[in-house]
Nucleic acid binder design. Structure first.
Length: 1069
RNA sequence: GGGCUUGUAGCUCAGCCGGUUAGAGCGCCACUCUGAUAAAGUGGAGGUCGAUAGUUCGAGUCUAUCCAGGCCCA
């Protein structure tokens, strides 16, 4: 039996210890607040950023600007944790960095929020209010939220240079885009195009392809209409047409059919209709009785003339005579009638088809979605309110067939949810054809993490249309495009200086303002073509221009080329992937390809979306959204960051307080407990950390200590590699495994070493080892959990070492000590842990408590290498499983069962196809004979084959008199029969256990010495007498009396293995 | 219709280069410990790895097809 001494004192960390006492029950959130204050008081962020300012090697990170239009949410905190993690890691590794955060501030999203604040309903309200005042409000809003986000990020322990954040609304950013646009113009890519495009009547602006595909669709039910297009010169015959947008019928010009699809001519309620054969069921559903008269291909319908539903309107003057059936390959057979109504002024594809056939174009709507003049009773009315009257008009004219509610995905404005219409507009574009290949080359040169990002981006580039860069709004980049009304010549200004030079009026009014509306619009230039006075086009720019330019603008491309060359391209950028392939990643690559024909970054790291705990989307309205501040105050930022970084970035993160609790219980508290344990005992012993490196100590390390250091160095190596290859999840899982081993193997098995009262070499070694592990761990954790590691580091290192940095965040990243890595040792302990687990399972199956000593443990392992570890781990297994002996099951006779398996990794490559034969022969042979031969190291003859002894694997199971557990080729069996001596020891241990409880319930200190009284049967007392010394040492008893306890003693009746004993304790002396 | 992606235990997810009998956490059940303890530990139950075919001595892993979900594009 093992005996032990107890620590001299009971409470953790008396004054006088080297380390500050550590409360095992700590309020982590309060601790974070204290640390924040300390960082702030000591200017730690700035000192951290200055750490490598003179370093040779640099790590360039370019921040994707966060929209400064609302407070930051927990989903932003996820991405910002990644950014901070990798920047901190590189800083500890000694890289020079810029630490610049970015804010995105120009664009419609800000306008919409300001409009809401001011109670505006439309663009007219803005113009009435004054564009200048409105733009100032937008700027103020951005400044306000930039401040809020900076504060929130500070709470997140994100250490950036908060005084140097860039703004996309800043002058230099805007002028850098001018430079880009001019470069595009010089290559002939900038053009004004007329197109039918999605339009928001509320915002009064078109939406680009990027905007509409991102989050622009909703399930909406509309009243769709089936109506008749009566054929000219064919009495009583009509095309049957279907549309979900009745408001477009007033702009109808043509109808389209698929030339190769089959159509039918039918009689229905006394009328003749034409429609697609596949869609005939429409009529059955709507209106019974259908007579199919004949079938014909769509091509036979092409060219037929018809009367349009609104031919009476003046606006139809030009189209009236042009109504006819066109052929179009995109007509489908899935819905509608197979005959499509075409309104080139009110639909994108319609517009294209109209152009191909030279059709007249009727564009019915104003910016606000009102019908223009020429539409009679419709003129001046809004598109959103006319459907019922249109139906009525159709009915009056006898061309209405049916009205059917129809649910479909319909595009809406991504900012205000207004249903979009298609409108014919003039917008400015960058032609992307020349850029497509350079962009694809750049994309291919980037390391995309996860790797499928590359294919996503390439696919987008394949499908990308020309980039619409204009928006008919107020707050945004002032497009530096000057189109002459006289000669149509276009000038593009590339800089503020160029504009000043070209200005012929209005410069005085503009000077001193940011290049925004309305001030910029005062400036006029002379047309380079005809000399006329030219105004800037009134449009503002697409916001992705603003964000895309930052790899140039923030790196001083225009003002300090040396600086730009130093930091471009970025080593790494990171953003959430849904959306960014067509937004930020896209615009960044576009501008970099255009200006320098290269990629803006070496690596892109992206991650998925955040969901709530149940995997549902978070919505304010649904009440499942979590505010950043609430999360930080309730679970603590370290917990959040741990939760974020342990996630697989390519799958959605289910975030919530439940998972947060799990993280705290699973990892943070165990780690804290180890730390608290260490400090408690180190203080009791007044242990000196300076001794940690003393050769007298480090030379004496036990296997357990060497094992921990081996694991620790393996950990350092893996974590470094994982972080260098952008693999946070793997990093975290590896650390978690280490902490589990540290807590549940190393500390648990080392506890008694720390209790001894004398200071022997083994105890010194234990302190030194645990200290090394903890201090290394604090540095590994510093980028992940900045608060926890700071707290631990300052206490364990800064406090005791005058030469150490003040903060863990000023320390260097640990380096692997290869000499400490011992794979055999690591693997052998892993084997011990596995066999111990199996042994416990075996004990449990026969209901033998670990406290009951057993005679023998038999184990079986899978390989000779593992077998060679057995002597190394024998003592560990004895202690863990409380057995007297450990033996290799292979050496045992009396096996109940033996099975033999081929050693596939060895045999497979050697025999290949013959494996099936060998497998069969092995199954047929007598396993005992094979096993015996193999264990003797003899060759095994098997039909035509001769196998080497290590080419088969032998497994044993089910020994007589043993309780056995088997798993994955390993086995452990404990001898179940108890000798009287074993039983006696079991009884004594059980009794000691009860005495310990009694000491505690009596309220004694750990170090109090006692007198022990035992009143019990002779059967129980006999073994106690035999092991009295052991009992006295374990329970700190000066005396043991067998009989009634005095009245002054603390007495309890206890059940010891089914028998009752009355135990009494009192303090001695 | 095209691209990407996912499908492994009741739930959430790991699973490297193909290798012996597929793992974790949560949940559930049982037990243990109680001087690291607002705890924790141990054990158990629970899986034909979406389906089929193929490649291979060997497939959760590679290939093809299909089914089902997600995102995106037409």
């Amino acid at each position: 039996m093992t005996t032990t001494d107890r620590p001299a004192r009971s409470d953790s960390g008396e004054p006088g210890g080297r380390f500050a006492p550590v409360d095992s029950r700590v309020d982590f959130v309060a601790m974070e607040q204290d640390t924040l204050k300390w960082w702030n008081d000591n200017d730690m962020n700035a000192r951290y950023r200055a750490k490598n300012e003179n370093a040779e090697k640099r790590f360039s990170f370019i921040d994707g600007p966060i929209t400064a239009n609302n407070p930051m949410g927990v989903h932003h905190a996820w991405g910002r944790t990644y950014k901070d993690l990798f920047l901190r890691f590189r800083n500890m590794q000694g890289y020079r960095q810029r630490f610049q955060n970015g804010f995105d501030g120009q664009g419609l999203w800000v306008e919409v929020e300001v409009e809401k604040d001011l109670g505006f309903k439309s663009k007219h309200d803005i113009e009435d209010y004054g564009i200048g005042r409105f733009v100032e409000e937008c700027k103020a809003r951005v400044e306000r939220f930039a401040g809020i986000i900076s504060d929130q990020s500070t709470r997140l322990a994100m250490w950036m240079d908060w005084d140097d954040s860039y703004h996309t609304m800043a002058d230099d950013n805007n002028y850098a885009i001018w430079q880009f646009l001019k470069s595009c113009h010089e290559r002939g890519w900038i053009y004004e195009g007329r197109d039918s495009m999605p339009w928001c009547p509320r915002c009064g602006t078109g939406l680009s392809q990027h905007e509409i595909v991102t989050e622009g669709y909703q399930e909406i039910t509309h009243n769709s209409v089936y109506l008749k297009f009566p054929l000219v010169d064919r009495e009583n015959e009509s095309l049957l047409v279907w549309t979900t947008t009745p408001w477009t019928l007033a702009a109808n010009v043509a109808a389209a059919v698929h030339p190769e699809n089959t159509y039918v001519k039918v009689r229905n309620n006394g009328e003749i209709f034409y429609l697609g054969k596949e869609l005939l069921n429409v009529l059955n559903v709507l209106n019974g009785d259908v007579d199919v008269l004949k079938e014909l291909p769509g091509s036979k319908l092409v060219g037929l003339k018809y009367r349009g539903p609104f031919d009476e309107l003046p606006a139809q003057a030009e189209a009236r005579e042009a109504h006819r059936v066109l052929e179009w390959d995109d007509v489908g057979e899935d819905e509608g009638t197979g005959i499509v109504h075409i309104a080139p002024g009110a639909g994108a594809e319609d517009f294209q088809l109209g152009n191909e056939h030279g059709l007249p174009i009727i564009a019915p709507l104003t910016e606000d979605g009102d019908y223009i003049d020429g539409f009679d009773w419709l003129s001046g009315r809004n598109v959103s309110e006319v459907n019922d009257d249109i139906f009525k008009s159709l009915e009056d004219k006898g061309v209405l067939y049916s009205i059917v509610p129809y649910k479909h995905r319909y595009p809406v404005c991504w900012r205000c949810n207004t249903e979009l219409v298609f409108r014919l507009v003039d917008e400015w574009f960058i032609g992307m054809d020349d850029l497509r290949e350079p962009m694809k080359d750049a994309t291919r040169s980037i390391n995309w993490v996860p790797s499928f990002g590359r294919d996503r981006e390439l696919e987008w580039l394949d499908n990308m249309h020309d980039w619409m860069i204009s928006k008919k709004r107020y707050w945004g980049l002032a497009l530096p495009i000057y189109k002459c009304q006289g000669c149509d010549n276009v000038d593009v200004m590339g800089s503020e200086a160029e504009l000043k030079e070209r200005a012929i009026e209005g410069w005085d009014q503009f000077e001193g303002h940011s290049p925004h509306r309305p001030w910029i619009d005062a400036v006029k230039i002379a047309c380079s073509g005809c000399g006329e006075t030219v105004s800037r086009i009134p449009d503002v720019g697409n916001p992705w221009l603003d964000a895309g330019i930052v790899s140039f603008s923030t790196l001083k491309y225009g003002s300090d080329v040396g600086y730009w060359k130093d930091w471009f391209p970025a080593d790494w950028i990171s953003e959430s992937f849904p959306g960014q392939f067509r937004n930020w990643f896209y615009s960044l690559i576009a501008m970099s390809a255009a200006l320098e024909d290269t990629a803006p970054t070496k690596a892109v790291f992206s991650y998925a979306l955040m969901r709530d705990e149940a995997g549902e989307e978070m919505h304010k309205s649904r009440g499942n959204a979590i505010w950043f501040e609430d999360a930080a105050d309730k679970m603590g930022v370290d917990t959040m960051r741990w939760l974020y970084t342990r996630q697989n970035p390519s799958s959605n993160l289910n975030f919530g307080y439940g998972p947060g609790d799990e993280v705290r219980r699973q990892f943070i508290i165990p780690l804290w407990n180890v730390y608290s344990f260490f400090v408690t005992y180190a203080n009791l012993d007044a242990w000196d950390p300076a001794a940690a490196d003393d050769p007298a100590v480090t030379g004496e390390r036990s296997d357990l200590d060497r094992w921990l250091l081996s694991e620790l160095n393996r950990l350092v190596g893996r974590v470094t590699e994982y972080l260098e290859t952008w693999r946070p999840m793997e990093t975290m899982r590896t650390i978690e495994e280490f902490i589990d081993g540290l807590s549940n193997w190393y500390v648990r098995r080392s506890r008694r070493r720390f209790w001894r009262s004398e200071s022997d070499a083994d105890k010194q070694s234990a302190y030194a080892t645990l200290y090394t592990a903890l201090t290394t761990l604090t540095r590994l954790l510093a980028p992940i959990t900045p608060f926890l590691s700071e707290e631990m580091y300052r206490n364990l290192v800064t406090r005791v070492d005058g030469n150490a940095p003040d903060s863990v965040h000023l320390s260097d990243w640990p380096v692997v000590d290869e000499s400490a890595v011992d794979d055999d040792l690591s693997d052998s302990v892993n084997l011990a842990r596995r066999l111990a687990s199996l042994g416990r399972s075996a004990r449990a199956s026969s209901r033998l408590k670990v406290r009951q000593p057993l005679a023998e443990l038999l184990v079986d392992v899978r390989t000779d290498r593992e077998r060679s570890f057995l002597p190394l781990i024998e003592s560990q297994l004895k202690e863990e499983l409380n057995v007297k002996a450990v033996s290799d099951a292979r050496g045992q006779g009396g096996l109940l069962s033996v099975s033999v398996k081929p050693n596939l990794p060895v045999l497979g490559p050697k025999y290949g196809r013959d494996m099936q034969t060998i497998r069969g022969a092995l199954e047929a042979a007598d396993p005992v004979e094979l096993a015996t031969a193999s264990e003797r190291g003899e060759q095994i003859s098997l039909g035509e084959f001769t196998l080497e002894p290590d080419e088969i694997l032998v497994e044993h199971a089910g020994l007589e008199g043993f309780a056995v557990a088997v798993d994955a080729g390993y086995a452990a069996g404990v001898r179940t029969d108890l000798t009287p001596e074993l039983e006696a020891e079991g009884t004594v241990r059980e009794l000691v256990h009860h005495v310990q409880n009694l000491r505690k319930s009596a309220g004694f200190e750990i170090s109090d010495r006692i007198d022990l009284y035992v009143e019990a049967s002779d059967e129980m007392i006999a073994p106690l007498r035999a092991h009295e010394t052991y009992v006295r040492i374990e329970t700190l008893a000066d005396t043991v009396s067998y009989g009634k306890a005095p009245a002054s003693a603390h007495v309890e009746d206890t059940d010891v293995n089914g028998a009752v004993a009355r135990l009494g304790v009192s303090k001695s002396r």
